[in-house]
């Protein structure tokens, strides 16, 4: 089964539990601007949800955009950035069609994105309306 998220933006209530859970999982604290998922409010229109689509992303342009081959797709479908190889050139940030790769500013200059929490994304467990549903993975 392809790996990724079933996203229904119509069901998103903009509660941001997904961002809170993401930052808590990745950083040990709630810090929404550093989450690997973003929900952009566009009232009265439905929000925009920015997160890596994994196998649903046609061509996965971030991988090819990286001049140092720091981004790769593994056998399970996880698209991951190798921090040790990343030079912080921002090519992937520009290439991502979903606006779902960000730059870490403090203590280095690396790109970061959703890593699907290795198979069971913390964000999905917090989504009570089913706007964000896991496909594939553990």
């Amino acid at each position: 089964m392809p790996l990724g998220f079933d996203i229904d933006r119509n069901l998103c209530t903009e509660c941001l539990r997904c961002l809170a859970a993401c930052s808590l999982t990745k950083l040990g604290r709630v810090q929404l601007p550093l989450a690997r998922i973003a929900v952009k409010r566009r009232w009265p229109e439905i929000p925009e949800i920015r997160v890596c689509r994994f196998d649903d992303c046609p061509g996965q342009p971030c991988i090819d955009s990286c001049p140092v081959e720091a981004i790769s797709r593994d056998a399970r479908g996880l698209v991951l950035i190798d921090r040790d190889t990343c030079t912080g050139c921002r090519s992937c940030v520009e290439a991502c069609p979903y606006g779902a790769i960000w730059m870490e500013e403090n203590g280095g200059n690396y790109a970061y994105k959703c890593d699907f929490c290795g198979g069971a994304p913390a964000c999905v467990q917090e989504c009570v309306t089913g706007a964000l549903v896991q496909k594939g993975g553990a």
Partner: peptide, 28 residues
């Protein structure tokens, strides 16, 4: 109708509605 939550709330009791007024204009 669209449910809108406050921060971190699974209940999402806020309801955003779209109306058409008597003069035909619409509002939220």
């Amino acid at each position: 109708t669209r449910a809108i939550a406050c921060y971190g709330c699974p209940v999402h009791c806020g309801m955003l509605h779209k109306f058409t007024r008597a003069d035909g204009s619409s509002s939220w």
